[in-house]
Simulated scan of single mutants.
Amino acid sequence: MEPTERTPRTVGTARAARAERVARAQAVPAGDPGLFGPASVTWQLHSDPVMWIAGIRALYLQALHPRAVRGVMENSDFRRDAWGRLRRTADFVGTTTYGTTEAAERAGARVRAIHRKLSATDPDTGERFPVDAPDLLLWVHCAEIDSYLHVLRRSGFPLTDAQADRYIAEHRTSARLVGLDPAAVPADRAALAAYFEAVRPELAVGADARAVDDFLRRPPTHPLLVPARAVLWRRVAHLAYAALPPYAHELYGRAAPAPAVVTRRLRTTGALLRRVPAQVRWRLPPRHVLRAVARLGPETRPAPYAARR
Results as ranks from 00 to 15, higher is better:
278 A>L: 03
255 A>R: 15
284 L>M: 13
17 A>W: 08
163 Q>C: 03
122 D>M: 11
38 P>F: 07
131 V>R: 04
128 R>W: 02
197 E>S: 14
18 R>C: 14
113 A>P: 12
81 D>Y: 00
285 P>L: 13
173 T>K: 14
229 R>P: 05
102 E>Q: 10
155 S>I: 05
148 Y>I: 09
179 G>Y: 09
263 T>G: 15
14 A>P: 03
302 P>H: 01
163 Q>T: 01
84 G>A: 09
10 T>M: 10
259 P>K: 13
75 N>L: 00
250 E>F: 02
126 G>W: 05
100 T>Q: 06
229 R>D: 09
165 D>Y: 05
94 G>W: 03
125 T>E: 04
216 L>V: 11
297 G>E: 03
24 R>T: 11
274 R>F: 00
155 S>Q: 08
281 R>C: 00
96 T>L: 12
299 E>Q: 12
8 P>S: 09
9 R>M: 05
26 Q>I: 00
74 E>C: 03
36 F>I: 04
240 A>G: 03
109 A>E: 09
131 V>M: 05
243 A>I: 10
73 M>S: 01
307 A>C: 03
185 V>G: 11
78 F>M: 11
210 R>T: 06
202 E>P: 03
298 P>D: 10
146 D>E: 15
29 P>T: 07
192 L>E: 11
99 G>P: 04
226 V>W: 03
28 V>T: 13
194 A>P: 04
194 A>I: 08
267 R>E: 12
156 G>H: 00
254 R>M: 08
179 G>R: 13
17 A>G: 13
195 Y>R: 12
123 P>M: 05
10 T>H: 06
178 V>K: 05
98 Y>S: 07
292 A>N: 07
142 C>I: 00
139 W>N: 04
248 A>S: 07
289 V>Y: 03
250 E>M: 02
42 T>D: 14
257 P>R: 11
206 G>K: 07
85 R>W: 09
11 V>M: 12
44 Q>A: 06
179 G>V: 01
103 A>Q: 13
67 R>V: 00
275 R>L: 10
301 R>M: 09
249 H>N: 02
4 T>G: 15
269 T>S: 03
290 L>V: 14
128 R>K: 14
283 R>Y: 09
220 P>F: 01
200 R>C: 11
36 F>K: 08
96 T>V: 15
65 H>T: 08
258 A>V: 08
130 P>V: 13
197 E>D: 15
300 T>I: 04
123 P>F: 10
305 Y>A: 13
257 P>N: 06
62 Q>F: 14
106 R>Y: 08
104 A>V: 08
